[in-house]
């Protein structure tokens, strides 16, 4: 049997397309549809009911949720981008042996082999009331009573995000920087550029795709997270994803659906914006 190349491609891609259509795109449409339906404590009725949307769009609470997560996102992004950029620069341009570079990257990845929930508990012995940080500060005489904002606070949430996501920034930026030919740097040095000028004029522009990809990781992780914020804030802080999780637990599907669609639109818009800075397929190919 002879089939055309086009048909062959379709056959080969069909299983993947099936998964995405049935498990992502159809559910997406269904969520959208359900957000317009009426409901009570146990069921969804097939009747149009727009309150889910007017609540989601109109309430002060929604705005607060997005302000909270926006603040988390900005602080996390600034810190991870700063640390990620400089460490990528360090790994690519300062570390001379590629073995050491790989070892350092692998070393940074190993802590992530411990499952997420355990990583959250791991902050207790460090940041808790009885934790090592408080003990150290008290024995140094910096404070008299234990700091309570170290754990179960917004500080703890951001700390956990940074802990989790610095690597997601470091990896792509390192990848982008590693592709910069050394001859460019040497040429710039020959032209008399200082290290700082080289970074600003050559490395930053060429590392942009990596920064964009890292940012996509951060945006999707922070906006989609409901678990870390719940555990690390001790249930005190809410974000949009968190609110959806709460409503899902209470079987309030239509309002959860409306909020989900809103969140989805925001995430997709941000990612689409970021994709203007990077052609992922080209980035992966060379």
């Amino acid at each position: 049997m002879k089939i055309s190349p086009r048909a062959a491609s379709w056959l080969q891609v069909a299983p993947m397309a099936t998964v995405f259509v049935t498990m992502v795109l159809v559910p997406l449409c269904i969520i959208f549809a359900v957000s317009f339906l009426d409901y009570d404590f146990a069921r969804v009725f097939p009747e149009i009911y727009l309150a889910s949307w007017s609540d989601a769009l109109g309430s002060r609470l929604t705005l607060d949720l997005y302000l909270t997560v926006g603040r988390f996102l900005i602080i996390t992004w600034v810190i991870t981008a700063f640390v990620g950029f400089w460490l990528a620069y360090f790994l690519v341009f300062h570390v001379r042996s590629s073995a050491i570079r790989l070892t350092l990257l692998a070393a940074a990845a190993i802590p992530f082999w411990t499952p997420g929930p355990i990583r959250m508990v791991s902050w207790v012995p460090l940041l808790g009331r009885e934790g090592l940080v408080n003990k150290a500060l008290m024995s140094l005489g910096v404070i008299d009573t234990p700091l309570t904002w170290l754990l179960y606070s917004d500080f703890a949430v951001v700390l956990a995000y940074i802990n989790l996501l610095t690597l997601a920034m470091l990896g792509p930026i390192t990848h982008s920087m590693a592709k910069i030919p050394r001859s460019l740097i040497q040429a710039a040095q020959d032209q008399g550029a200082s290290e700082w000028q080289i970074i600003r004029e050559i490395i930053v522009p060429l590392a942009k795709p990596g920064i964009a990809i890292g940012t996509i990781f951060i945006v999707t992780a922070v906006l989609g997270d409901f678990f870390i914020v719940k555990i690390m804030s001790g249930g005190q802080t809410n974000t949009p994803a968190n609110a959806i999780a709460t409503e899902l637990a209470a079987f309030q599907y239509p309002p959860a659906a409306a909020k989900s669609v809103m969140l989805l639109v925001i995430v997709v818009a941000l990612v689409a914006l970021l994709l203007r800075f990077v052609d992922i397929r080209k980035e992966l190919r060379d």
Binding site: V13, V24, P27, L28, V34, T220, G224, A241, V267
Partner: peptide
């Protein structure tokens, strides 16, 4: 259809997990 499948994959990757999970359960 290459772009359609590729962007479906990107969408699937960037969508909040809770959203996807909820959508499948609802479906």
């Amino acid at each position: 259809g290459a772009n359609f499948v590729f962007y479906s994959a990107i969408t699937s990757m960037v969508l909040p997990g809770i959203f996807v999970g909820f959508g499948i359960a609802l479906t």
